[in-house]
Design a protein around this nucleic acid. Structure first.
Length: 162
RNA sequence: CGACGCCGUUCAGGCGAUCGCCGGCCGCGGGCCGAGAGGCAACCGCGGCGGGAGGAAAGUCCGAGCUCCACAGAGCACGAUGCCGGGUAACGCCCGGUGGCGGAAACGCCAAGGAAAGUGCAACAGAGAACAGACCGCCUGGCCGGCGCCGAAAGGCACCCGCCAGGUAAGGGUGAAACGGCGGGGUAAGAGCCCACCGCGUCUCCGGUGACGGGGACGGCACGGCAGACCCCAUCGGGAGCAAGGCCAUGUAGGCGGGCGUGCCGCUCCGAGGAUCGCGAGGUCCGAGGGGCGGUGAAGGAUGGCUCGUCCGAGCCCGUGGGUAGGCUGCUCGAGACGCCCAGCAAUGGUCGUCCUAGAGGAAUGAUCGCCACCGCGUCGGGGGCGACCUCGAUGCGGAACAGAACUCGGCUUACGGACGACGUCGACCA
RNA sequence: UCCAGCGAAGCCGAAUGGUCAGGCAGCCGGCUGUUAACCGGCCUCUAGAAGGUUCGAUUCCUUCCGCUGGAG
């Protein structure tokens, strides 16, 4: 019951992905980039926060379809078996880096655990700020200082799948 | 026994436990409709039942189905294919054959039409590279000279060097390729100049559906290579693609500025209203406007290379400013899968029977643990053997391929781990 | 999903059926008190891979691999 992972726990529209990748805050680990942003609130302001959602981005640069599927399954499983990894009302986007498919589930979990304290701090910051409702600008994202990110990540090019 | 060759079938580790994902069916509850009984194709939750990747799902190299472009028309252009026969919905695929090349053989490979329609190309080397050419050489004649022999002399004979004129293409040499090959005759030397065989060409006979094969006669070398160079000939191809296309919702509306057009005729129907006759019901006439059919004309548009032809046509085009990205469907019963039999050398086709087998959409088909199987290496123990080693059991470590449906089929190509079975060739040994 | 184009030295890049320019970079030498600039010389290519056509292939054909771009 607590380990369910239905459609309401997944990010399913391109607009949501773009919102998180544009305005979200970042935490990194050797094989992943984790981005968080607040979920858009429903009408009723007193309603409880909606559950957190997961979206996964694995570009074709990472590997073949089989490899990409492997990574996505690992990430989904790790998120599913860890309720409360991020608080409710948070959208989490995981971007895979090269070599992620060679990890086992336990290794992914360990890596996420190391990144979690920083990630939770970002979540708190993002929840204070509240959801961004403004539409993202059409042309690219503001180029903030980019930490050294090996492998880089193409943007806007071929559509990443999750 | 060894070395090869070739064909076919089949699997894609198994079982269990726990936690999940996608869609289907059933039930209950919510929800919705209804006064109610009750109903629900569509929404949400819970429970149950059964289903859920491939042989290549891949590359996107071909062929089709399906959908839209009015019909899918003609010519040109462009592209593809290219021995023959068959198979097929179709194909550039498959099967059987023919020819060529490779191999000792089994067998493998081949885009394999046309170079006597035209154009073009061939570096370097070489004398000459396409209606060729003469460097060395060989031969003949002439001239000058030298030397030897014979002769008393005149002169004669033989040889060598140089030059000139001519003959020749056998030999040398160059090249990927040199204007038939080889042998004999012939000749001053040579040459298809002549002859035999082979090659080539023409005619012809026989066999074959045909590609082609076999034979005969004649010719007397005339016709080199490259068409995966342009090209010619034959055959085929209209274009786009499921983000096709359809339905619902919505702001493809409406606004502003500018431009072009909305025509005419006939038949017919409706007809506000008007005039007139009648006591009246009603009749007759005129009739703005509108509908239908037909003809003609038309701004503009369709036929995604061009032209023609054809078709649509009452609205259309340009600018300006302002928006949308959601849901349903197409979506899985099909040139379908399996089995028996029959026809055929085969590819394949046919009758009958049985079966229904993923349908996602930021995209499911998974994760973890345990046990059992498989392979490799190591250790220990038992058995066999003189021995290399074989075999059985236990145990530790490692490995266990290529790879993920996106409308659906038929092929091709590429990637890749096994298991099983059949056939053929050659060599060695034994009988 | 569909469709184009491109792979040549460490880098950028012409031309082409006959072994492949040029520039930058590098190395050596010269000039200068030294460096830069300049001058002279040198080095560097299985032409993405494998087959085929041709006497001969980087070029033509086929199949793979990688990269880039475009359409909806």
């Amino acid at each position: 019951m607590a380990f369910d992972f239905g459609r309401d726990r997944r990010i399913r529209s391109r607009a949501d992905f773009v919102r998180v990748q544009t305005y979200g805050e970042r935490a990194t680990s050797p094989h992943f980039v984790l981005l968080v942003a607040a979920r858009a609130k429903p009408e009723a302001p007193e309603a409880p926060a909606p559950p957190s959602r997961l979206g996964i981005v694995v570009t074709r640069k990472i590997g073949s379809a089989t490899v990409r599927n492997r990574i996505k399954r690992l990430c989904r499983e790790c998120f599913r078996l860890w309720p409360g990894f991020v608080p409710d009302g948070i959208d989490l986007v995981v971007i895979a880096r090269e070599g992620a498919h060679e990890l086992s589930l336990a290794e992914v979990r360990a890596e996420w655990a190391r990144a979690r304290p920083a990630l939770l701090a970002r979540c708190a910051s993002v929840l204070r700020r509240g959801p961004i409702t403004a539409k993202p600008p059409l042309k690219g994202r503001p180029k903030k200082g980019r930490p050294p990110s090996p492998g880089g990540r193409p943007e806007g090019k071929e559509r990443p799948s999750s």
